[in-house]
């Protein structure tokens, strides 16, 4: 069994059997995290570089730990403390790094398509850890894994994404992955924060939160990007909270078995209230733990795809 691509650039167009294989393999790696020695040897001798051109805590630590727990040698690089400051181009930076004999590159970049560009100039396996507003496939996978852990399957689930869908790579990866696995997906947010022609992605679009919550199993609350408030996309934080903030009162109409997710970092009291964030239905910290298992699974599976046989994208 192996993946049909040697890179993970996004979840759009990834076949169901690949997503299923990643999720099934993640179950095994999740178990490794409960062992006294949380380390297994399959990537011994492989070198992975984490290229972070944008700030990140969670994703970067998660990838770094995932690599170490697979016994790979990993090195992290952040643009702010490197020769990028001296004006070196992305291509030159990565080709220099590749000349040091590396096997895999995990990349986060502000430009959509940067990971794809790297597949054109490098031999290494490329994993997208977020490219601008485009995709963040491992976050999408870990969200889906967390839902599957709770409900046993994805098919037939009703999932609502709330907030800034337009600028959210997390939302896009969630939508593609969930649709492929047969979930029904809805999005809700202020019109200014919804993508144009969102219906074409096969989702139901709402601008009223109470309507959107009808019959929902999972509510995935996205971070409201406060830095975008300057752009005038919504009038004030308080108005956003009143109209779209998820509070206990809004949720009482849902069936008992609902789930609250958030990819972090949370703005407590803005898009999510304290009591919701800390409620028994919240699986926000499970998402973080599962993220490591999913990333281990992706690294392990990609390392097994040979250059020549795989159908490259």
């Amino acid at each position: 069994m192996k993946l049909s691509s040697r890179h993970l650039l996004g979840l759009e167009g990834v076949p169901k059997k690949d997503i299923d294989l990643i999720l099934d393999t993640s179950v095994s790696f999740r178990e490794v995290l409960d062992r006294p020695i949380k380390k297994v040897p399959p990537l011994r001798g492989k070198t992975v570089v984490n290229l972070f051109y944008e700030p990140s805590t969670r994703t970067r630590i998660s990838f770094d730990l995932a690599e170490k727990r697979l016994s790979a040698d990993s090195i992290s690089f952040s643009a702010s403390t490197s020769s990028v400051k001296k004006g070196e181009s992305l291509k030159d930076t990565v080709r220099n790094i590749e000349a040091m004999k590396i096997d895999m590159v995990v990349v986060r970049h502000k430009s959509p398509g940067a990971p794809y560009y790297l597949t054109q100039c490098l031999e290494a396996n490329i994993i997208n850890a977020g490219d601008g507003p485009h995709e963040h496939p491992t976050q999408g996978l870990l969200d889906i894994f967390t839902m599957r852990q709770k409900y046993g399957k994805i098919k037939g689930l009703r999932v609502l994404l709330v907030g800034d869908i337009k600028h959210s790579r997390v939302a896009r990866s969630n939508i593609w992955g969930l649709k492929t696995l047969g979930a029904s997906v809805a999005i809700c947010g202020p019109t200014t924060l919804l993508p144009y022609e969102a219906e074409k992605m096969g989702v139901d679009v709402y601008t009223h939160i109470d309507e959107a919550l009808e019959g929902v199993d999972v509510v995935n609350i996205l971070r409201i990007q406060l830095e975008r408030q300057q752009a005038g996309l919504f009038p004030s934080q308080r108005e956003y909270t009143n109209l779209f903030g998820i509070s206990k009162e809004r949720l009482h109409r849902l069936n008992k078995n609902y789930t609250i997710m958030h990819p972090g970092p949370m703005n407590r009291g803005v898009e999510i209230s304290n009591d919701v964030a800390d409620s028994p239905q919240s699986v926000i910290l499970d998402q973080v733990t599962n993220g490591q298992a999913v990333r281990m699974s992706v690294l392990y599976l990609l390392s097994g795809v040979d250059d020549r046989e795989a159908t490259s994208e």
């Binding site: 069994m1 192996k2 294989l21 099934d24 393999t25 179950v27 095994s28 790696f29 178990e31 490794v32 297994v40 040897p41 399959p42 001798g45 392990y300 599976l301 097994g304 040979d306 046989e309």
Partner: peptide, 21 residues
């Protein structure tokens, strides 16, 4: 499941499916 500890992970063209220990 012993697949993560196999000595042929890097040589076997068809990767073993890892199951839960």
């Amino acid at each position: 499941d012993i697949n993560l500890y196999r000595d042929d992970v890097n040589f076997n063209p068809d990767q073993p499916v890892v199951r839960a220990t």
